[in-house]
Amino acid sequence: MSYKSDIEIAREAQKKPIQEIGAKIGISNDDLLPYGHDKAKVSQEFINSVQGKEDGKLILVTAINPTPAGEGKTTTTVGLGDGLNRIGKNAMICIREASLGPNFGMK
């Protein structure tokens, strides 16, 4: 069985504009400072405006070794975010850094 490479998967991805992602969780365009089309900082005013709201949930995903197919923390995190959204939860994911396996020749 052959698997697509990381770059093949990345090139097939259809990224959404950051404004669309922000709108999904209630952040208006006025509260986003875009860095290109798919990244943005959130204004301090917006952060201050939600300080009194009930906190959400934080799920940390960790692992030691990926599966032979390369499924590790990133794949699990994306799948978890997609699954929570699918069942009606308002979920967002944040990935701290990209997979280091390809950078070190381990994948």
Rank of each mutant, 00 (worst) to 15 (best):
T67G: 02
T75C: 06
Y3Q: 12
G101M: 13
N65Q: 11
V42P: 04
V42L: 05
N48K: 15
I27C: 06
I47C: 09
L60S: 14
K16H: 05
P66K: 04
P34N: 00
M1H: 14
T62N: 09
G105V: 10
F104D: 10
Q14H: 06
M106W: 15
K57G: 15
G22N: 04
P102A: 01
I59L: 12
T67Q: 03
I21A: 01
R86N: 11
K57A: 15
Q51C: 13
G105H: 10
A13W: 00
G81W: 08
K16N: 04
V78T: 10
P102I: 01
D55Y: 15
I21M: 00
G56A: 13
I87A: 08
G36P: 01
P66A: 03
I87Q: 08
K107A: 13
K89D: 09
F46Y: 09
G83W: 15
L32P: 01
L60Q: 12
R96A: 15
F46H: 07
G88F: 02
G72T: 01
T67C: 05
D30I: 09
A98G: 06
T75K: 03
E20P: 00
T74Q: 05
G56R: 14
K24S: 10
L32N: 04
N65P: 07
G81V: 13
D82N: 13
I47H: 08
K4S: 09
A63G: 06
N85L: 08
R11K: 06
T74L: 04
L80E: 07
T75R: 04
K4Y: 08
V61H: 04
V61N: 04
D30F: 10
M1W: 13
E97A: 12
G83I: 14
M92T: 14
G79D: 10
G26M: 05
T75I: 06
S43K: 05
K4G: 08
I18N: 00
T77A: 07
A40G: 00
